[in-house]
């Protein structure tokens, strides 16, 4: 009885989460522009999506910014963790306090603050300002995922390697990096997804004429939803499904490898 109630509950939540998404997927194959009448199967909205230069440009911007921001954030964040390991706890606490600000602050405040900063220093808003802003809100996540990996032992092993005649570079590559790698990887992935998903901060820090997927959707929805956006939803959903499945499979394979 209890189990049945649990199952029904899960089912209801799943329907709530997925019915809206599946509605979009079904409508993306609808020939008519209408949101309520099914007139036949068609791929024309996908064609319209791929023909649109603006849309393709936005997709390129989104992913190139996400990769670059995640890379910069990963390098700066990992270096910061190495640096903080040499500092007094008191100073680390202060830095971590500042590190938390972009995470805890509302996105709209972070976005506006960055926009005002760019205006004050006279930086024209565009690709670079978006990139800078994205790295700003990604760095905290990298630090939070790498920091727990760095411990006293890492340092001791590094010293031991040096004593045994390893060069600093070699010891770093063979000892420190493998210890930090899981944290670095998850920090990079987290940054990438946060960047791809961001709308609010991009909205305030972009200039006219440059779009990411999010800002383009927002401006298109304002003038009226076109079914090509349903096609985009379907593709985004499919991509998320594939990536998450791949990550999960890899993880369960790694788990098995550890268990074996």
């Amino acid at each position: 009885m209890k189990k049945a109630i649990g199952r029904i509950y899960i089912l209801i939540i799943m329907l709530f989460l997925y019915l809206p998404i599946f509605t979009l997927i079904v409508l993306s194959f609808n020939e008519a522009k209408s949101m309520s009448v099914w007139t036949g199967f068609s791929l024309k909205w996908y064609e319209e999506l791929f023909r649109s230069k603006i849309m393709m440009g936005a997709i390129v911007n989104t992913f190139s910014i996400a990769i670059l921001a995640a890379l910069v954030a990963t390098v700066v964040g990992t270096m910061a963790v190495l640096g903080m390991a040499a500092m007094k706890q008191r100073h680390v606490n202060v830095l971590m306090g500042f590190n938390n600000i972009p995470m805890l602050n509302a996105d709209i405040v972070t976005g506006i603050a960055l926009m005002l900063f760019f205006l004050m220093v006279g930086l024209p808003r565009g690709y670079m300002t978006i990139l800078f802003s994205h790295a700003t809100f990604c760095i905290p996540y990298v630090i939070l995922s790498v920091k727990p990996r760095m411990n006293k032992n890492t340092d001791r092993l590094f010293e031991a390697a040096l004593d045994l005649g390893a060069s600093e570079r070699y010891a770093f590559r063979r000892i420190v990096l493998p210890e930090l790698r899981p944290g670095i990887m998850s920090g990079f992935l987290l940054s990438f997804t946060m960047s791809v998903d961001d709308f609010i901060i991009t909205y305030f820090t972009r200039g006219a004429g440059i779009n990411t997927i999010s800002t383009l959707i927002y401006s298109q929805v304002k003038v009226g939803i076109r079914p090509s956006l349903f096609a985009l939803s379907t593709l985004v959903f499919a991509a998320a499904l594939i990536v998450l499945l791949a990550v999960n499979l890899r993880q369960s394979r790694d788990d098995k490898a550890i268990a074996a």
Binding site: P20, I21, L24, I217, I225, L229, V236, A240
Partner: peptide, 13 residues
């Protein structure tokens, strides 16, 4: 993982 603007748009639809 799906853009939240698209998810909000779904409810509009």
């Amino acid at each position: 993982w799906m853009n939240f603007l698209l998810r909000t748009m779904a409810w509009q639809v």
